[in-house]
């Protein structure tokens, strides 16, 4: 066993060296490492998408900058997607006047347009339903599971992701309130 004198010398030495390491390994210029990348991950800029809605109007995510955006990827055959639609509609109705937008992207390349229309009618959905006909949006958002919901802040950065569902109305409301107050 080493003597107390050497023990304190060694441990204090290690603590000083590691403290210096913390200073030397700091991020230069206080920079954020996520800036400049558009990827579907928390903290990064949300990838831009341009899709047609059911009224055949082109909608771009980047045009909604300044709004809180809830981006939900869904399909009519997906059971959790069905379960969470009333919650999304309730949030849309409540927050539409407060610069909150809901974009529900239907994975149309794995769905059927007639079923999509019937689905929208069944749930009386009034928020924009975008059609991902060629799968570009699901590819850009690395869709792995349905439904998936991205919460995007007013500056266009992803603040949270919920994979799977159904997402509860409370969780939607908490996330939206947080982003409004940001």
């Amino acid at each position: 066993m080493i003597s107390s004198k050497y023990w304190y010398l060694i441990t204090n030495g290690i603590l000083i060296v590691t403290a210096i390491y913390i200073w030397l390994s700091r991020i230069p210029d206080n920079g954020k490492t996520q800036v400049g990348f558009s990827v579907p991950q928390k903290g990064f800029q949300a990838p831009d998408i341009k899709l047609y809605n059911l009224a055949d109007e082109l909608i771009a995510l980047s045009d909604l900058r300044g709004n809180v955006v809830v981006l939900n990827l869904w399909a009519s055959w997906c059971l959790p997607c069905r379960s969470e639609m009333p919650a999304l509609q309730a949030i849309y109705d409540e927050y539409i006047q407060r610069d909150v937008e809901i974009l529900a992207i239907n994975i149309t390349n794995q769905d059927n347009l007639d079923n999509v229309l019937a689905f929208v009618k069944e749930f009386n959905l009034t928020f924009p339903i975008l059609l991902d006909v060629d799968g570009n949006a699901s590819q850009a958002y690395l869709l792995n599971s349905l439904p998936t919901t991205f919460f995007i802040n007013k500056r266009g950065f992803i603040s949270d992701i919920v994979v799977g569902g159904p997402i509860s109305e409370t969780l939607l409301r908490v996330q939206v309130e947080k982003l409004i107050q940001e």
Partner: peptide, 8 residues
């Protein structure tokens, strides 16, 4: 997450 001067 950063503190001040880019220190993690």
């Amino acid at each position: 997450q950063l503190l001040i001067y880019g220190i993690r």
